[in-house]
Simulated assay, not measured.
Amino acid sequence: MHRAIGDREFADTAMDEATAREAFRDMVLAREFDERALSLQRRGWMPGYPPFKGQEGSQVGAAYAMADDDWLFPTYRSNAMQLARGVPASDILLFRRGFAEYHSDHDVPNFPMAIPIASQIPHAVGAGMAMDYDGADAAAVAYFGDGATSEGDFHEAANFAGVFDAPVVFFCENNNWAISLPRERQTASDSIAVKAEAYGFEGVQVDGNDPVAVYETMRDALADARDGSPVLVESLTYRQGAHTTSDDPGRYRPEDEDLPEWRTADPVERFEAYLSEAGVVDDEFVADCRSEAEAELEAAIDAAEDASVPDPADVFEHVYADLPPRLREQRAWLEDYLADHDPQEMEF
Rank of each mutant, 00 (worst) to 15 (best):
I179V: 15
E197V: 00
E184I: 04
Y199T: 01
A196N: 09
A225K: 12
G203R: 11
M218Q: 07
R226K: 15
A188R: 14
I179G: 00
P182A: 07
S191W: 10
A221E: 06
E216T: 12
E216Q: 14
D220Q: 14
Y199H: 13
V194R: 12
R185P: 00
R185E: 15
I179L: 13
P230D: 04
L222H: 07
Q186T: 05
A188T: 13
P182D: 10
G228C: 04
I179C: 04
I192T: 13
A188F: 08
T217R: 10
Y199M: 03
S180I: 00
V231P: 03
P230A: 02
M218G: 02
S180H: 10
A198T: 04
I192H: 13
A196C: 09
R183S: 14
A198H: 08
R226S: 03
E197T: 04
A213W: 09
A223V: 10
K195D: 05
V214K: 08
E184Y: 12
D220S: 14
P182F: 06
V204M: 12
A223P: 02
D210W: 06
Q205F: 02
D210A: 09
R219C: 01
D224Y: 00
R185I: 00
G203V: 04
K195Q: 15
I192Y: 12
A178C: 08
V212R: 05
A188W: 09
A223R: 15
S191L: 12
G208Y: 12
A188Q: 14
N209A: 09
V194F: 05
V212W: 03
V231G: 01
V204L: 15
A193V: 02
D224H: 05
V212F: 12
V212K: 07
I179A: 11
A178D: 08
D207N: 15
Y199L: 02
T187E: 09
S229W: 00
S229D: 13
D224F: 00
D227M: 02
Q186F: 11
L222G: 04
A196R: 05
D190E: 15
I192N: 11
G200Q: 06
D207R: 13
A198K: 05
D220E: 15
P211H: 10
V204P: 03
K195P: 03
M218N: 04
A196K: 05
V214L: 06
